[in-house]
Design a protein around this nucleic acid. Structure first.
Lengths: 243, 243
DNA sequence: ACAATAGTGTCTTTAAGACAATATAAC
DNA sequence: GTTATATTGTCTTAAAGACACTATTGT
């Protein structure tokens, strides 16, 4: 090992964002249209290189969240997903991308004022099924992000990050149904969610009504870990014909 | 944004390994003694920079596993833990380290023939309690690795990675007890583990005996996801005085 | 009244946890 | 025999899941 003559190789550092939200009861991910090579014209995750050598990676994630999606990272759930550094993943050279998972509440705004404004919400099903042909290894990153979200729904309060400051229990249920891609019994869900101490808290006598009986409003509780967990049904148990 | 004149900053890419194993029914992590600055004389995680700009990150993890711990990565559980890239974490410059979690079966060998042979197994308690003063942000990385292992024990078959090819149920129980740092009822654990389909499979009539009744031997089943999970007891429920 | 959604009660099945009892080895 | 560990059984409680029923709105 010639330690004196050898110097370690450097790589470019990028940040990529998997931003998930609910739109029309469906799980969506934010994608941007690439305007330059490589993969010009393809859809890709929002993201980019570090601004300068002193920028923190998490700071860069917040900056991209603001620049590319007009979202305030301080008010969103944001966690690191992992590093993607396979040598051939970017034709421009050795790029190590650090992916982040962000959860945005489903607000009315479509995407808001992006500079290039080439950002659209796309159903994750379109991505997972491979219909969409994302740039780089971004499909794999989306898959990992969705799986992370699915897993964390079980034993953390992550589902609330998809909701506004206040929400109804059926809105919360729609989050679980959309992310897991299954249907849940509203009555059992209602009881279960209320039985998890510190998950949600009732907020005043205010109610939200559209068609049927008005629903109580809740806000986030103080617990981030759920006991007992909201268990995802075992896919092996899908035997009988469901309604 | 002056895209033509600006070029993105580069960073050095390192790989760090959190290698966990069981020794004397206690969870240990492999640490090496640093011989050069920075942090010369401190304990650190095994790892190092990428060998060349074409080396894959996972390949580098395997290489370091071999070089620094004389362990065959192909026979170990190895998964990415995450990227650590805070600007000030390495005084030599901007270094992004990609951490991996490895689980080694508790074999007789102490550490085996490392070149520098400065590698020792250290109880994770010594690290988590802060008694040990690791280099860089390696204490945080160990904390994340241990927490990952603790969580995955619940709903994956990761515990088996701590055991040899065949093992007894009480050996498996010791893994859960050491990693979680709690005691479990052997009788309930026995039944529960056998009730998880595909977790473990009996292997022949061979038995292992030391003091009491010889125990049956098992090997890994074909399932990696556990249904139902091996739930970690809720720490809030620790009320009564335990035996 | 009716349709639609919210919320409660009840029952059955399954898993968790405490712990008695039995089995098979070493000594 | 005694001691030590492995394995089985039984009982109680908690949670999961199915599903009837009541409540409160808009139309």
């Amino acid at each position: 090992m010639p330690e004196e003559t050898w110097s370690p190789p450097a790589a470019l550092i990028a940040v990529d964002l998997v931003i998930l939200t609910l739109r029309a009861s469906q799980l969506h991910v934010l994608l941007v249209q690439r305007g330059v090579e490589p993969y010009s014209g393809h859809q890709a995750l929002p993201g980019g290189f570090l601004k300068d050598v002193e920028e923190d990676v998490l700071t860069a994630a917040h900056r991209e969240l603001q620049e590319e999606a007009d979202l305030d990272g301080a008010r969103l759930h944001l966690e690191q997903l992992g590093a993607y550094g396979t040598p051939g993943r970017d034709p421009r050279g050795r790029v190590v991308s650090i992916a982040y998972l962000a959860i945005a509440p489903s607000l009315p705004e479509p995407v808001a004022g992006t500079d290039a404004s080439s950002a659209w919400w796309q159903p994750v099903d379109e991505v997972l099924s491979g219909k969409l042909q994302l740039a780089f290894d971004h499909q794999e990153i989306v898959e990992d992000g969705v799986e992370r979200a699915r897993a964390k729904l079980e034993h953390t309060a992550l589902a609330i990050a998809f909701c506004g400051d206040t929400f109804t229990i059926s809105e919360l249920q729609q989050v679980y149904e959309a992310v897991w891609g299954i249907r849940l019994d509203p009555r059992n869900f209602y009881r279960k969610v209320q039985g998890v101490s510190g998950f949600i808290e009732p907020v005043g006598p205010d109610r939200k009504a559209t068609r049927g009986r008005p629903a109580r409003l809740f806000r986030a509780g103080d617990r981030t870990a759920l006991h007992p967990p909201i268990a995802r049904p075992d896919p092996m148990m899908s035997n009988e014909g469901n309604n």
